[in-house]
Simulated assay, not measured.
Amino acid sequence: MRKIRTVIIDDELHSRDELCHLLKQHEDVEVIAMCEEAQSGLMAIINHEPDLLFLDIDMPQTNGLELAKSLMKIKNKPKVVFATAHAHYAAKAFRVEAMDYLLKPFDEDELSETLKRYREQVLKQFQHKQSVVTSKERLTRLAVDDEERIRYLDPRSILYLSKEERETVIRTREQMYRVRTPLKELKQKLEGYPFLQTHKSYIVNLAEIEGLVPWFNGAYQIKMKGIKDEVPASRTYVKALREKLEL
């Protein structure tokens, strides 16, 4: 069971502890960080990339609304639930795309409803992604230029693709092909197969990964089956990669 990785940001110790205690009653929730002000909270969000954020509004220096507004610019934004003693902030809260709004003191049933709403939203998003993939006709072969003639590759034979200057390299176990088709376009054509972007310049066939080697600053090198090449996995893409590999 995948945990709902959660961060709490609240300047009141009692409120943090109370909310943490209530959340721990739910087996699928994991509180990974508790912070007392916005700046340390923002760092926790960047470093841990939580799924869900419980955020107080009335805090010194940077308030919760300002922090939530800044989160709208980041790539992996958590779902935001405002947890506050002040009901009059509700309208402003939803302008920054808050998922829900809880009033202190916290009610167990209301918190359970919030978590239920989160689970339903995540399930809908997953089902939508699946329907997009399955609604498209899956590519059965990929055409590539090979010394002035066209070859047709089985997508499952591709180990990885990489961008090199103005060309895209397609690597199979036997050969390497260079094409003019942009990496982004090839990624779209290969939807329905287990390909995942691991770096801004690399897309990897998950079924052909042999292992991961830790690298610098949270990055990895990916060892592919049957070849000596190692493919980079940058920090930006590591979380998605580990989830796909169930690590």
Rank of each mutant, 00 (worst) to 15 (best):
Met1Thr: 02
Val7Gln: 02
Arg16Asp: 08
Cys20Lys: 15
His21Asp: 13
Lys24Ser: 13
Asp28Ser: 06
Asp28Pro: 04
Cys35Pro: 04
Glu36Pro: 01
Glu37Ile: 06
Glu37Lys: 08
Ser40Asp: 13
Ser40Val: 13
Leu42Glu: 13
Leu42His: 13
Ala44Pro: 07
Ile46Asp: 12
Ile46Leu: 15
Asn47Gln: 15
Leu52Ala: 05
Leu52Gly: 00
Pro60Val: 06
Pro60Ser: 05
Gly64Met: 04
Glu66Asp: 14
Ser70Gly: 03
Leu71Arg: 01
Lys75Phe: 12
Lys79Ser: 14
Phe82Cys: 03
Ala87Glu: 15
Ala87Arg: 11
His88Glu: 14
Tyr89Asp: 00
Arg95Val: 12
Val96Pro: 00
Asp100Thr: 00
Tyr101Ser: 03
Leu102Lys: 08
Pro105Met: 02
Glu110Ser: 09
Leu111Asn: 02
Ser112His: 04
Lys116His: 12
Glu120Val: 10
Glu120Ala: 12
Leu123Glu: 15
Ser131Val: 14
Glu137Gln: 15
Arg141Ile: 00
Arg141Thr: 10
Ile150Asn: 09
Ser157Trp: 01
Ile158Trp: 03
Ser162Val: 01
Lys163Ala: 12
Glu165Leu: 12
Thr168Phe: 10
Val169Gly: 06
Thr172Met: 05
Arg173Ala: 14
Glu174Asn: 12
Gln175Val: 09
Met176Tyr: 08
Arg178Tyr: 13
Arg180Pro: 00
Leu190Val: 05
Glu191Phe: 08
Tyr193Ser: 02
Lys200Glu: 13
Phe216Ala: 11
Ala219His: 08
Lys223Ile: 10
Lys223Ala: 13
Pro232Gln: 00
Pro232Cys: 09
Pro232Asp: 01
Tyr237Lys: 05
Val238Asn: 02
Glu243Arg: 01
Lys244Met: 04
